[in-house]
């Protein structure tokens, strides 16, 4: 038995060799290479626009977009807030709705047989085509944008949560049954924690979809928000402002996705999947 103890690997055995340089070398694959590629693309873009003297209204150079971001910053900030808030709220609502619906779908056989085909059907139709309907039903306020954002982002959560709740090893469920555990106990202590890694992968998709939903909503009806700003700028043929808005959107999307990814990392550490 002590032989086993000796065999236990040191957790995350780090190579003994010294730090920073090696770290950089190891990171180069995941950080430096993609960064380098992105910078090269921007440089190429800058060069081509200047070399061929492309009109700014067609395609502004990255440096022009950057200057526009700086000059329009207060403006961008006021439009960034509603978009971000609606995206976050839409995402949270779709998480709650998605996990709840998935739980009912997994537990209720009759409910699943009745409802699941319809849920899938609504995923097969091009959802963006339905966006104007939401305006008709819910008006031009943030309700319709939120509802559409949830509509577009909850499905990946449903699918991921259902898969997760069913991922429990059959022997684990046998053990629970043999211990005469109640279904509520099994859900709280076994099924839901087992589903967490799946739920998080659904969350990563949902957070990007939620933003798409909000932007589409803003395209159709809004007096504020980055989607509105993009439409407004295009009506003025203000291409640098369009790209500045898009760049701001990218940053928000990246931050939100990063937050979910960080939460996932913390969850996986707790979960103990080495």
């Amino acid at each position: 038995m002590t032989a086993d103890a000796a065999r236990l690997p040191a957790p995350a055995a780090a190579p003994a060799a010294p730090g920073a340089l090696r770290m950089l070398a190891r990171r180069s694959g995941t950080v430096l290479m993609p960064l380098g590629f992105a910078v090269s693309v921007l440089l190429l873009w800058e060069f081509l626009v200047r070399f061929y003297a492309v009109p700014t209204v067609i395609l502004p150079a990255p440096s022009v977009v950057w200057a526009r971001i700086l000059s329009a910053w207060p403006f961008l900030l006021t439009h960034l807030v509603p978009t971000t808030v609606e995206t976050v709220v839409g995402f949270l609502l779709s998480m709650i709705l998605g996990t709840t619906l998935a739980t009912f779908l997994v537990y209720g056989r009759r409910f699943r047989e009745a409802v699941y085909p319809t849920v899938v059907f609504f995923q097969l139709i091009p959802k963006i085509a339905l966006a104007p309907l939401f305006i008709v039903w819910l008006g031009i306020g943030s309700e319709s944008r939120l509802a559409f954002s949830v509509f577009i982002s909850f499905f990946p959560v449903v699918i991921a949560t259902m898969a997760g709740l069913r991922a429990v090893p059959p022997d684990m469920l046998r053990l629970c049954r043999s211990l005469t555990a109640t279904e509520a106990q099994v859900f709280a202590a076994v099924r839901f924690p087992y589903a967490l890694p799946y739920i998080f992968s659904g969350m990563k998709i949902a957070v990007t979809f939620a933003m798409i939903g909000v932007i589409v909503g803003e395209f159709i009806t809004a007096q504020a928000g980055l989607g509105y700003l993009i439409l407004f700028a295009s009506s003025q043929a203000e291409t640098p402002l369009i790209l500045a808005s898009i760049a701001t959107l990218c940053v928000i999307g990246l931050v939100l996705y990063g937050a979910v990814a960080l939460a996932e990392k913390a969850m996986l550490r707790w979960y103990g999947s080495a």
Binding site: P169, M172, R174, L175, S178, V190, P193, W270, G272
Partner: peptide, 18 residues
């Protein structure tokens, strides 16, 4: 039906990973 006075061991340890 299942009776808790039985102890079960399976082929895999089937421990809760967390």
């Amino acid at each position: 039906g299942p009776r808790p006075e039985f102890g079960l061991v399976f082929q895999d340890a089937t421990l809760l990973p967390w």
